[in-house]
Design a protein around this nucleic acid. Sequence first.
RNA 1: GGAGAAGUCGCCUAGCCUGGUCGAGGGCGCGCGACUGGAAAUCGCGUAAACCCCAAAAGGGUUUCGAGAGUUCGAAUCUCUCCUUCUCCGCCA
Length: 428
Amino acid sequence: MLDIKFLRTNPEIVKTNIKNKFQDDKLPLVDEVIALDKEFRECKTRAEYLRSQRNTISKKIGFFMAQGQKDEAEKAKAEVASMADELEQLSSKETELEEKIRKIMLVIPNIIDPSVPIGKDDSENVEIEKFGDPFVPSFEIPYHVDIMEKLNGIDLDSARKTSGNGFYYLKGDIARLHSAILSYARDFMIDRGFTYYIPPFMIRSAVVNGVMSFAEMENMMYKIEGEDLYLIGTSEHSMIGKFIDTIIDEDDLPQTLTSYSPCFRKEVGAHGIEERGVYRIHQFEKQEMIVVCKPEDSMDWYNKLWQNSVDFFRSLDIPVRTLECCSGDLADLKVKSCDVEAWSPRQKKYFEVGSCSTLGDAQARRLGIRIKSKEKGNYFAHTLNNTVVAPPRMLIAFLENNLNEDGSIRIPEPLRMYMGGKSLIEVK
RNA sequence: GGAGAAGUCGCCUAGCCUGGUCGAGGGCGCGCGACUGGAAAUCGCGUAAACCCCAAAAGGGUUUCGAGAGUUCGAAUCUCUCCUUCUCCGCCA
C-alpha cells in the first residue's frame, strides 16, 4: 500500500511502476484516485469548518445556559440546526470517498526496487547466483517418496485414510530427521542473533484481514468452525500480526525474529496438490525469519536474510541458487523478492525451498507498524521475511543430495548431534 | 461450559451516579534544566496519535476515552448492540 501523498506528488512514477509490472489495466486508477482524493480533501476541509463552528456555538450555549440567558441560547441552537443538514451530507460523503480511496490504494502495487529485473511472469525470473556444485551422481536418484519408503520413513496410505490427500505420516529416522532439521535451523538462527519465537498457530479474522487479501484468505486459510479463528498458513501471519497498530521505539530496532510453526494451507487452485509425495501439502512445518527495521537498513537486511538460507542449505551439502522475482511475478506488496532454490539431482533442476522478501513500508502502512523517532517523529517501519527451512519439502532436497547408491543417507556433521550422533541412516 | 467484574493519553489510575469548567487530573516512566566534584535524592518545565488548511515554518482546525449505532445544540459521562480482557468455578494436556 502506497502513501497517498507520494502518489499525489509522483503520479508518473506510480504509472511507470504499474507498466513495469505489466498491470496496464490498473493505470486509470491513478488519475481516478487523485481526483477522489482532491474531492475528499475539499469535502473534509468544509466539514471540519462546520464542525468547528458547531463546537464554538455549542460552547456558547453552555455559557448562556449557565447565565440563564434562555433566549440567546435558543438563538444559538437555531444557528447550529441551520447547518446540520449540510454537515450530515458532507460527513457521509467523506466516509464514502475515504472507503473508495482505500480500496483503490490497496490495489495499486508497491514501487519496486530499481534493481528488480523487468519481466512479465515467472518464466522471466532471473538466476542471480549458484552456490555449490549441482552434482548428478552416476546412479539413478529415485523419487523422494521411494527413497523414504525404502527407509521405512513415510506412510501416505494411512494419511489418506485419516486425513485425505495432501497429508503424511513420517516415521522412524525420517521423522527424526525432520525434527533434527528444524532444531538445527532454530539454533542456526539463534546463533546469528535472532530471537526464537513459538507463536500462536491460530489467529483471529481481524489479523487475517490485515495480513492478506480476501482472495488469498479464501485460497489458503482453514477456518475453525464456530470460532473466530483461522489456522495460520505461515508463522509470518502471527509474527507480523503482533505488530499491528504498534509504535516501536527506534532504540528497539531492528527486531530480528525467528519463529517455528506448523503451516496449514488449503492450496485451492494449486494443481500441484495432485503430485504424489510431500512437495505440496496441506500441512508442513517451517522455521521463518522476520525483520522489522528502519528504512535505511532494509536492503542490507534483505541481503543478509537470503544469505542465511543459502548458508543453511550449504551447511547440509545441498547446492542452491538464488532466483530473483521479475517485476511481473512480484506480489503487489513487495519491493524485491528472491527464491532460494535447492538442487534436485533427480530432476536435474532447481526447485523452490524458500522465499525472501522486503516489503518496504507497504505492509507497515497497511498494518500501522510505526517507528518512534526523536528527530523524525513517527514513521512507518520496513518489514521483511524469509524462510529458513520448511520440511518436509526440504527433505526432498536433503534426501536426493545426501543419498548413497545403496539407498542409505549421509547425515552432514551439523545435524548429527540432533540425530543421536548418527552419521548415516541405513536401509533396514 | 457456568457466574461475576472491567476496557481512559507508554504503563498504572481519577473522572462516569449529577452531560458543557474534560483532550481529559494524579502517579510511574521518559526528555530537558537547576542543584552536585560526579551521582543518587530533590525541585522546575515538558511529554498521545492520525488527518486537514497553510509553499514551508509558525499557527489554526477536525477526529480519537474498546468498536459501532442512538439521544442531545453539546457525550469519556446517558441508552442499545457487539468485541475483548480479567477473576472465580468446572473440565483438561
